[in-house]
Write a protein that binds this DNA or RNA. Structure first.
Length: 366
DNA sequence: TATGCGTGGGC
DNA sequence: TGCCCAAGCAT
């Protein structure tokens, strides 16, 4: 990976300068004021594919609501998902809840303290396991995330594709041979450097504490590294959303427990079959015997990681007198806990993804 | 190995 | 607008 003649010096710069820099430059983050494995676990799960600034308010709220693994265990999955509302990648919340119950049932409520045990828990993979083990338990393992891949690729002037599993393995194995005693600070330092200095665009090399060893800085290739294959862009889907209103209350359904936004609440939504087909009306007629004509109240676009929804939002007024004469408006395949009416004041009780919560402002047109 | 899985921010 | 990216994991 590196010219062996230089390697000793280059490794020393990394081992010595990085922790020194981290000690004085690290951000004052709430989860850095504790060694509590539970708190560190929560912060690391939240940090997956999420910028630190985004998760901080969630972290405070979550720790206040669920201060330890037992309180998390006692909560319902709905409560945990609600606490995760707005953060995205909601399977993280479900895995967190599952893992908490495993920790109580299989580990006497104590967080497993080794990498090997940690990665057996749902939602904890190689990165998160390494982060918890090294930061909370000082185990000599590395924690290789996107920051680390970028920092090390540049430091070694490597053009290997960081999306390739082989590259990650190679970097992991190299790091394992150079981990210093204070492994937690070293791992966090690499990530902090990646987040604050060795950024993807316009890295602040003049402020970098390991610049003298950085082969990419020396070669002037920091703009070319890391190499990463382009993601294929999202598919755009035209969707129809139905907002059913009855006496000011809105109709919601719970989404299936697998797939996009699983377990979250939702307005009824369908993929538009064809132009002006009003597929949503057909779907709603399965649940409501008398709907009336839909009113187009607006459009909205929502970008997910792998799909884009272009939504046409239709309002349906449910006449109370009609509903009373059709008490069985809910179909049998929609059990009561899978659908509900909520007033605007009550909507907050449901875990509603942003794709739908942002539609609430369209109600002014309805 | 490749894909599904959210959301917000930067430019 | 679009495009990239972010302290990844499960399958």
């Amino acid at each position: 990976m590196l010219d062996t003649k230089k390697e000793y010096l280059i490794i020393k710069i990394l081992q010595v300068n990085l922790p020194l820099w981290f000690k004085q430059a690290k951000r004052d983050l709430p989860f850095r004021q504790t060694k509590d494995p539970y708190s560190i676990w929560i912060s690391e799960i939240m940090a997956q594919q999420t910028q630190i600034d985004t998760l901080i308010p969630y972290y405070y709220r979550f720790i206040k609501q669920f201060p330890n693994v037992f309180s998390l265990t006692l909560a319902s999955e709905d409560e945990v998902i609600k606490a995760w509302e707005g953060l995205g990648y909601y399977s993280r919340a479900r895995n967190l809840h599952q893992a908490a119950r495993l920790i109580v049932s299989d580990y006497n409520g104590l967080m497993p303290d080794t990498f090997t045990e940690l990665i057996k828990l749902p939602g904890i993979g190689p990165y998160t396991g390494g982060a918890i083990a090294s930061i909370a338990f000082n185990e000599k393992v590395c924690a290789v995330d996107g920051n680390v891949l970028r920092v090390i690729s540049r430091y070694c002037n490597s053009y290997d594709d960081i999306g390739d599993a082989k590259t990650k393995k190679r970097i992991t194995q190299w790091l394992e041979t150079i981990l210093p005693q204070a492994v937690g600070d070293f791992n966090e330092g690499l990530m902090e450097l990646g987040a604050m200095i060795c950024t993807p665009q316009n890295p602040k090399c003049l402020l970098c504490p390991i610049r003298d060893g950085c082969q990419s800085f020396i070669a002037g290739t920091t703009a070319l590294i890391p190499v990463k294959k382009k993601k294929q862009k999202q598919v755009t889907k035209k969707m129809e959303v139905g907002i059913v209103k009855q006496n000011g209350a809105l109709f919601f359904i719970r989404r299936p427990d697998a797939g996009l936004l699983s377990g979250m609440w939702s307005f009824p939504i369908t993929e538009a079959a064809a132009k002006n087909s009003q597929a949503i009306k057909k779907k709603l007629e399965e649940s409501f015997s008398q709907l009336g004509e839909p009113v187009l109240i607006g459009t909205s676009r929502h970008v997910f990681s792998h799909v884009i929804w272009e939504m046409s939002v239709y309002g349906f007024n449910l006449d109370l007198s009609v509903c009373e004469t059709n008490a069985g408006y809910l179909t049998a395949n929609q059990p009561p806990d899978q659908s509900t009416f909520k007033s605007l004041a009550q909507v907050d009780e449901l875990a509603l993804p942003v794709a739908f919560s942002k539609l609430l402002k369209l109600l002014d047109n309805f």
